[in-house]
Simulated scan of single mutants.
Amino acid sequence: MADGGEPGTLRPGGRTARVREAVLRAAEDALTEEGFTGLDLADIARRAGVGKTTVYRRWGTVTGLVADLLADMAEQSSPRTETGSLLGDLTANARLVHRTLTDPRQGALFKALIAAATGDARTAAALHRFYDIRVREWAPCVRQAVERGEAPEGTDAHEVIRAVSAPLYYHLLISGGRLDEALADRAAEAAAIAARAGVYVRQPTVNSVS
């Protein structure tokens, strides 16, 4: 390939960056409107105003394009907020997730990506990487809380962050319940209480001796 590397991995700068931006935004539009099953590289090229051969050469497949879209979304996500307290930081995280999932465009986009991941291994791997990046971005707020004495030593910071967003995704995808800011605040408070109580302290591995 002209740009080298795996499909969808492009060197930033100049025309390459402009083409990538246009194609990724077109992919977002198509996912939001048509869902994963409606994605077609030729249609995305048309939407982006670029040649079909450029899209096929650089991304190769729909899953390659979706993987690059998720990588871009992780790069563009808002940085964590530091309020000086565990509850404050977790509330900021929960409200950020809430705003994303209730946004008409972003909410529909995430639903489409999650649906795609259930049936495509490469998309699932890309989605897992996206969430891993976001969890690692916010995990330091839990480690800082441990240093302040707000949570016990050994608290699994990643699990605390996952616990904040899990109820929001449940309401989005499963229950159909009202996904409002009050729910986000309750999710943050529940995770903070559980963390302070030691629920997320990593348990040492016990090796059995025969």
Rank of each mutant, 00 (worst) to 15 (best):
R178G: 08
I114E: 09
I161D: 01
A112V: 08
R122G: 13
R134H: 09
T155W: 04
V146H: 01
S165I: 08
H171A: 08
T155H: 01
I133T: 13
V160A: 03
S165P: 01
V135R: 13
L127K: 02
H171I: 04
D156V: 03
E159D: 11
A163S: 14
A166F: 07
R162C: 07
L113I: 08
L168W: 02
D120Y: 02
S175Y: 01
T123Y: 03
I133R: 12
L168D: 07
V160S: 00
R162P: 00
H128L: 13
K111W: 04
P167A: 10
F110E: 03
G119E: 10
L179C: 01
V142W: 04
W138A: 06
T118V: 10
P152D: 12
T123V: 15
R136H: 14
L127E: 05
A116Y: 03
Y170D: 11
P152H: 12
E150C: 06
Y169M: 09
E147W: 08
R122C: 05
D180I: 00
D132Y: 09
R178Q: 15
L173I: 08
S165C: 03
A124M: 11
V160G: 00
L113C: 10
A163V: 02
P140Y: 10
A125L: 12
E159C: 06
P140A: 09
V160K: 05
R143K: 13
E137K: 09
A166I: 04
A145G: 02
D132E: 14
E159Y: 10
A145K: 00
E147V: 13
E150G: 02
Y170V: 14
A166H: 10
A121E: 15
G119L: 07
D180C: 03
K111M: 06
G149Q: 14
V160H: 01
A166P: 07
A157G: 02
A116P: 02
H158R: 15
G149T: 11
A117C: 13
L179H: 03
D156H: 05
I161L: 04
A125P: 01
R143L: 11
A115C: 07
V135I: 12
A157H: 01
L127W: 04
R129H: 10
L173C: 02
A125M: 07
C141I: 06
Y169G: 08
D132F: 12
I174F: 07
A115D: 12
H128E: 15
F110S: 05
V164P: 00
D180L: 02
A139L: 04
V164A: 01
V164E: 01
H158I: 13
I114C: 03
A115L: 13
Y169H: 10
Y131F: 14
P167Q: 11
T155K: 02
A124R: 15
R134D: 04
V164S: 00
H128W: 08
T118G: 12
G154M: 07
A126M: 05
P167N: 14
I133H: 14
I161V: 15
R178C: 10
G149N: 13
E159Q: 14
V146K: 04
A124L: 15
V164G: 00
A151P: 07
G177A: 15
R178E: 15
A126V: 03
Y169T: 07
W138F: 12
G177H: 12
R129T: 14
A139N: 03
P167C: 13
R129Q: 11
R129S: 11
R134P: 00
P140L: 10
I161G: 01
A116W: 05
R162W: 07
V135W: 03
A166C: 01
A126H: 06
